[in-house]
């Protein structure tokens, strides 16, 4: 039975994170296009990405990219590695561990300026 097992959640999360990343990509293509209006317009527009609220949103993006990446590797291993289906559940656990670990590491650097008021690498 597929429904309700970890495979269903792995699949559903893969689809939801995929759509979220794609939506951000479309927004991101529009925001880099603002480069064509020169430095003043670009710097003013892109300063929204440094706002604390938008940093929290970008945490979601980072989590989505990490999960979609690692689970994508898992899907490819299931397809091409003869032992893949046997270990798919263990691999999903590994995907979640890598996602959470990577997220905590990267999230620390993203949120640090909010608490220190300066870019991460400039804070002692």
């Amino acid at each position: 039975m597929y429904r309700g097992q970890s495979g269903m959640w792995a699949w559903l999360l893969h689809r939801v994170t995929g759509v979220a990343i794609l939506l951000f990509l479309l927004v991101h293509i529009v925001d880099i296009t603002i480069l064509g209006f020169g430095p003043t317009v670009y710097n003013n527009a892109l300063s929204v990405f440094a706002l604390p609220f938008v940093r929290v949103v970008s945490l979601g993006l980072i989590a989505a990219v990490l999960y979609h990446s690692f689970n994508g590797v898992r899907i490819t291993l299931i397809d091409f590695w003869p032992q893949g289906t046997k270990y798919q559940q263990i691999m999903w656990a590994a995907v979640l561990v890598l996602t959470i670990g990577g997220f905590l590491g990267m999230g620390y650097y993203v949120m640090l300026p909010v608490f220190h008021g300066c870019p991460a690498h400039q804070c002692g």
């Binding site: 020169g38 892109l46 650097y109 870019p119």
Partner: peptide
């Protein structure tokens, strides 16, 4: 790309320059 833009640099530094 994420590591360059959010870890080794901060988004506030990714200006026009």
């Amino acid at each position: 790309h994420l590591l360059v833009m959010h870890v080794s640099n901060d988004v506030s530094q990714t200006s026009y320059d």
